[in-house]
Amino acid sequence: MNFGPGRMSPAHRSVIKKKGYKKAIHSYRHGKIQWADKQLAGMRIDLRKSLRAQQSGRCYFCRQLVLQERRNACEDIEHYLDKSKLHYRKWTFSPVNLTIACHPCNLQKGNRDLGDAAIRGSTSLRVGSGSFRWLHPYFDDYHRNIEIHPGWVYAVKASAPKAAEAAAMLRDLELDQIERIQQTRQRYVDLLERTVVLMDKLIERNEVNKPRMKKLTAILKTLKDELRWA
C-alpha cells in the first residue's frame, strides 16, 4: 500500500513566493496580522492543495487518508515547529516547516517544542541546523524509520537510522490507539457479517416472520448506530 512519500520535497515553495501573497506575508512578519487572517486565505488554500498532492492525501504523521470536508474540518496545515512560539515564528512560511496533518494528530501534537537549543537559535532551517525530537518531514525518511502493519499497527524499524525520534513521535502522538480503534471497528464488522449470513439462511428457510428474524433485525440496527461512531 502507498502510504505517501518517505521524505517530502517542498514543491509548495512556489506558492509562498507568489507575488500576490507578498504583502500579506510581510504584514504577518511585522505582527500586523495573524495566520488566520483573511489576507492569507488564498495562500492557505493553495498550500493545502499542494501539500495534499505531495502527501497523497494522507496525514504526514499517521499516514491515514484525510477526508476533504468543505471547511477542512478533518485536516490542518501543520507547522512542524510551532508558529505560536516566538523563536519559530520566523519559519511560519518556511516550506520545510509545513505539512498537512489530520485533526486528531494535530491536536495530539499540540504546541510541543520539537527543536533543540541549536534549532531555536538558528537563522536557517536545514539539515545540520540542530536536532529534532521527532522525525522531520523533509530531512528524515518516514518509511526507513517506521513500518505500518495491517490494522494500523505502528512500529519502529529494527534498522531505523532515527529510532529514538521515530519512537518519540509514535509515543507522543499515541498512534497505538489507532490500532485499538480499528480493532473495535473490525469486531463490529465481523458481527455484522455473521448476522447477515444468519439472516440469509433464515430467508432461505422461509422463516422471516419468526422471533429469531426480529432479533437479528434489532442487532443490525444496533450495529448500524455503533459503526457510525466507531
Rank of each mutant, 00 (worst) to 15 (best):
H30I: 00
Y138Q: 05
V156K: 05
W152Y: 11
S131T: 15
G110D: 00
D176N: 15
H103R: 13
M1G: 12
G115M: 11
T184A: 15
T222I: 04
R44D: 09
D225E: 10
C62M: 10
Q108V: 02
R52Y: 14
G110H: 05
F139S: 08
N97D: 04
R194W: 09
H103S: 13
I100P: 00
I203V: 12
A118T: 06
L216N: 11
F139H: 12
A160Q: 01
A11W: 10
K19V: 11
R112F: 13
W91E: 05
I16N: 06
G57M: 09
A160H: 03
K109N: 03
P150F: 10
A73T: 01
M43F: 13
Q64V: 14
E226G: 01
A160E: 03
S27F: 00
H26Y: 07
K221H: 08
I33K: 04
D140V: 04
E207A: 14
V153S: 06
L216H: 04
T222M: 15
H79P: 06
R7F: 07
M213Y: 10
A164E: 14
A101K: 10
E204C: 03
M199A: 11
K109S: 03
A11C: 07
A53G: 08
N97A: 08
L227N: 02
N97Y: 04
D113F: 02
K19W: 05
N111P: 00
F93G: 04
S124V: 13
T217I: 12
R126F: 11
G4L: 12
P95I: 07
W35T: 05
R63N: 06
R7V: 10
H136L: 07
M43N: 03
V96C: 04
Q182H: 14
G20S: 03
E78I: 03
Y88I: 02
G6R: 10
V156M: 02
P211E: 15
R228W: 01
N209M: 11
K157A: 05
Q177R: 07
S124L: 10
D141G: 00
S14F: 13
R58F: 01
N111F: 07
G57I: 09
I181F: 07
R120Q: 15
K109I: 02
A24H: 04
I45P: 03
E226P: 00
S159R: 00
L67G: 12
A117W: 04
L98D: 11
I146C: 11
F132E: 01
L98C: 06
K201C: 02
A158F: 02
K157N: 08
L202I: 04
K19Y: 00
T217K: 15
H149S: 03
R13D: 15
A167R: 15
A230F: 00
V208H: 04
A164V: 14
L220Q: 14
Q64D: 13
K18D: 05
K22Q: 13
S27R: 12
R126D: 12
G115R: 09
H149M: 13
A36H: 07
T99N: 06
Q54D: 15
A168M: 06
R120P: 03
I119V: 15
